[in-house]
Simulated assay, not measured.
Amino acid sequence: MTHPYLDAPGGVAALAHRGFSRDGLENTLAAFQAAVDLGYRYVETDAHGTADGVAVALHDASLDRTTDRTGRVAHLPWSQVRQARVGGVEPVPTLEDLLGTWPDLRVNVDVKERSGVAPVAAAIERTRSHDRVCVASFSVTRRDATVARLSRPVATSAGTTEALAFFRAGRSGRVPVRAVRDVDVFQVPWRWRGRQVLTARHVDTAHRAGRLVHVWTVNDEADMTTLLDLGVDGLITDRADVLRDVLRARGTWR
């Protein structure tokens, strides 16, 4: 836990999932500003690369669901993607916009497709934001390929195969040596197919290995309390307002 990204104020990382928006304007500068206005020091975003190598903050592979345009981001140049409006209102931001607008904000970046690997790394390099970025991906290969392009270390989150090894090992309490080798934090769900899969033993196993546990995506106040009582190190939420109030009540909001 030596990387600066992991030094959470108050001991708990509160991550605003795709920023904070109650009106569908996820992954926009307006949503990230709303999280900052609430006092958040961490946000989570997703990233894709355009056809001409620009990293954009967008969850889906295409513009179809969230914007007034259509088409796969990887097949479109930035000159076209930049014309799209999320919810018909807000432009799709570049990752560099996000990293550059708030130079103290810590950003969890989920690299969604291979097309995003080089552009994400380039955005981190240009903004020199290594100390405040965590690179994540469901794909270990994508995450490692992104990190390999960087001139300095960033924090890293577990991919799917590493997370599965973590869950299997946690049942026995044995530290999953291979799963923790290239990982600083396990960012995992706590429920799967309607049942709770994360336990205090999992959290303890990660801590004994010197790794942190962040849980996504937790929007209910009671669930937040349950997970904090388990000892998790961070929560990723769509309800940044609710999580802030929960942490304030516990005296861990900074």
Score class of each variant (00 low, 15 high):
V203L: 08
L228H: 00
A222K: 15
D64I: 01
V36D: 11
R193K: 14
A123L: 08
N27T: 06
L228F: 00
V154W: 02
L235Y: 01
R171K: 15
P103A: 13
R248D: 12
L58S: 10
R85P: 01
D46H: 04
D46L: 03
R65Y: 04
V177R: 14
V117A: 13
A240I: 12
A200G: 11
D110N: 12
R178Y: 12
D233F: 11
A123M: 09
A16C: 07
Q196F: 00
R85G: 04
N108F: 09
A155W: 05
R254G: 14
F138D: 03
F138N: 05
A163N: 13
V188A: 05
V120R: 06
H48P: 09
H207V: 08
L95W: 01
H130Y: 15
L25I: 12
E125W: 00
L58Y: 01
W102K: 02
V175Y: 04
R171D: 04
W102D: 01
L164Y: 10
R195Q: 15
L105H: 03
A222N: 13
S21Q: 04
V111P: 08
N27H: 11
R41F: 10
G210S: 06
A51Q: 07
D64L: 08
L150K: 04
V81S: 03
G159H: 06
C134A: 15
V81G: 04
Y5S: 09
S157V: 03
A145M: 12
V109N: 03
H75G: 12
E221P: 10
V135E: 02
P153M: 00
D144I: 06
